[in-house]
Design a protein around this nucleic acid. Structure first.
Length: 569
RNA sequence: GGGCGUGUGGCCUAGUCAGGACAUGGCGACAGCCUCCUAAGCUGUAAACCAAGGGUUCAAAUCCCUUCACGCCCGCCA
């Protein structure tokens, strides 16, 4: 029947509609088949044909309804014409196949339908301090997206681009030389202290700014001692960042260092390539690229008048490398990169290279304004995680007072981080948000913990059935006829569409919405349909199989969201 | 000044790109439910005509125009 369920059903409806439309002599570009609240799938194609052919949409819908032929060997059970709408319902075998398929394929259900190599860059925060609540929006979006794309079948490599050569690292290194390193603190926090303190010093005494310029020149000229201290600064900062990301359940396959591109000659290579396009010129001693063909009024500076390279230039080299090593390049970037990323895309295009697909997310600000590492105005991710986890501990303690402390600790860590990740990923990236402690610590209903709880409930039912039911036993899914059972099965069947769309549109938040809906349907079922106490054996076993399917799907959805799925909580 | 993004019940939010059948869900409020599988659950009530105004269309939260508000950005920082 194909690899899909909902998508297969949709395809079949499109197919019979297309046959009907063609045989009636109409021409149309799309069949407008979508999921509907009135049926399983519906089409409003009659409206489109009505305006095109100047006929009554109801008549057209009627004609199509009379012409369309539903094959026996399909998922479509019923077609109904409701005024101008064409409604379709799935047949029983659609539900049965869904249950059987999930039981058979488990976490591989609706996966591996795409292929190709993707390099996905995310987080890439400057190594001059700890990650703050804005950075982790990048991490969560990037990590979730990489999980979605992997499930879809892509070979995804995630990269963190380390800016180890910029001005702010020079400032940190200057501070490290002058003030020393505070061993008592988490390394990235100690680096932030140095960065903030150094900035204050530099503001007071502009003479010292020359020190920074000198450090930058020395590092670009390959001075060993300077490189060493830069590396040390970066290593300290990154060490802390990696810990933070680990707590968030985020990991990168590779860390790519910006300085590499200067030292291995790629930067000078790309400058030559740009020159040979004929679109560069010298402006006040600096080398600039003319992007007016791409609608940019201002020229892009790629080399300073003192001959040193800029971030932009090194980023071009980095993208040249990514472009060569993969089929698709995806960047997750904050809203402040909108302009530079479109300039980068234009320049890549000018060079005749693959452009990155850029996912932009809007800013996270504080109630008192935007964050700034330099001014020390930020809330660190570590701080949020700690507070959320201890709040979660209180919640667990309240509900499961008799459980041992290590259970409470483990569950509260999972629930706390689940709440954080869900909270971040569930809002679409293009919305700017304001961080609010009260909201962060309030485990609002129907967030991460809600989905986790639904999963734990499913596990609990199965645990209770262990003595008399084996998940490997074959069952007859056709006895699952209650409304709540059918609704749950249909929701699970739609997983293929969710992954497909999320991967195509690079929108991770749709998976969060789906997770919530799936949990809704499961809880509904849980409330109204008895499983272990069902009177009939065949029914009980089929329901256990359904619970097992729900367990698999909830766990899988949580996995894609990077949230752990506790069996008990 | 210009560019990009956002504006949905008291608060947060889905839906907007591919216009259609009663605008999604939560928080908060109010009223209930321990129903045998964990009440981090479930049920019900009140509450938005989708920033404002115009336009296109048989049909607009969704497309176009204008205005307002907020956020981000605008060449030798990263």
């Amino acid at each position: 029947m194909g690899d899909f369920l909902f998508l297969e059903l949709k395809k079949q409806v499109e197919s019979i509609l297309n046959d009907a439309v063609v045989s009636l002599g109409y021409e149309i570009d799309s069949l407008y088949v979508e999921a509907s609240q009135h049926s399983d799938v519906a089409s409003n194609i009659a409206f489109r044909l009505a305006s095109k052919y100047r006929q009554n949409p109801k008549d057209i819908a009627e004609k199509i309804g009379n012409t369309a032929v539903i094959g026996n060997n399909s998922y479509i059970g019923k077609m109904e014409v409701t005024g101008p709408y064409l409604n379709f319902w799935a047949k029983r075998n659609y539900l049965d196949d869904t249950v059987l398929k999930i039981r058979k394929e488990k976490e591989d259900f609706a996966s591996n339908f795409s292929s190709g190599d993707i390099i996905l860059e995310h987080t890439s925060a400057n190594p001059n301090g700890p990650l703050h609540v804005g950075h982790i929006r990048n991490s969560v979006i990037g990590d979730t997206l990489s999980r979605v794309l992997k499930h879809a079948g892509y070979n995804v490599r995630t990269q963190y681009y380390v800016n180890d050569i910029g001005r702010q690292i020079a400032i940190v290194s200057w501070g490290l030389k002058n003030f020393g390193f505070d061993e008592s603190k988490k390394s990235d926090h100690a680096i932030a202290d140095l960065y903030i303190r150094s900035n204050q010093e530099l503001e007071k005494d502009t003479f010292k700014v020359q020190d920074i310029d000198r450090l930058m020149q020395m590092v670009e000229n390959g001075d060993d001692d300077t490189i060493k201290i830069f590396d040390e600064s970066v290593r300290y900062s990154l060490e802390g960042t990696k810990q933070t990301l680990k707590t968030l359940n985020v990991s990168h396959d590779e860390f790519v260092y910006e300085s590499e591109f200067i030292r291995n000659g790629s930067v000078s290579k790309i400058i030559d390539e740009l020159k040979s396009t004929g679109h560069t010129e010298i402006d006040n001693g600096a080398l600039v690229v003319d992007l007016s063909d791409y609608g940019f009024e201002k020229q892009l500076v790629i080399q300073r008048s003192d001959g040193t390279s800029l971030y932009t230039t090194r980023d071009l080299s980095y993208h040249e490398q990514k472009s060569a090593e993969s089929d698709r390049v995806i960047d997750i970037l904050g809203a402040d990169h909108k302009l530079v990323s479109s300039q980068l895309k234009a320049t890549m295009n000018l060079l005749g290279k693959k452009e990155p697909e850029v996912v932009i997310f809007e800013f996270v600000s504080l109630p008192e304004g935007s964050m700034s590492t330099r001014k020390g105005k930020f809330i660190t991710a570590d701080d949020v995680f700690d507070k959320v986890k201890s709040q979660a501990y209180k919640e667990v303690d309240k509900r499961r007072p008799d459980m041992p402390a290590d259970f409470k600790k483990e569950i509260s860590d999972q629930v706390g981080m689940g709440a954080v990740r869900y909270d971040i990923v569930s809002v679409s990236p293009e919305k700017s948000t304001v961080f609010d402690w009260k909201k962060a610590l309030d485990f609002e209903k129907q967030g991460g913990p809600y989905v986790q709880y639904s999963h734990a409930r499913a596990c609990n039912i199965l645990k209770k059935a262990k003595t008399f039911w084996n998940p490997e036993n074959s069952v007859n899914p056709s006895v699952l006829v209650e409304d709540d059972e059918v609704a749950l099965i249909k929701k699970m069947a739609k997983f293929d569409q969710v992954i497909d769309r999320s991967a195509k549109e690079l929108k991770p938040h749709t998976v969060a919405t789906y997770a919530r809906e799936l949990a809704d349907d499961f809880n509904q079922f849980y409330r109204y349909v008895p499983v272990n106490s069902a009177e009939d054996d065949e029914v009980r076993y089929a329901r256990l199989a359904l619970v097992d399917c729900a367990r698999i799907m909830l766990a899988n959805t949580l996995y894609i969201l990077g949230i752990s799925a506790p069996e008990s909580m």
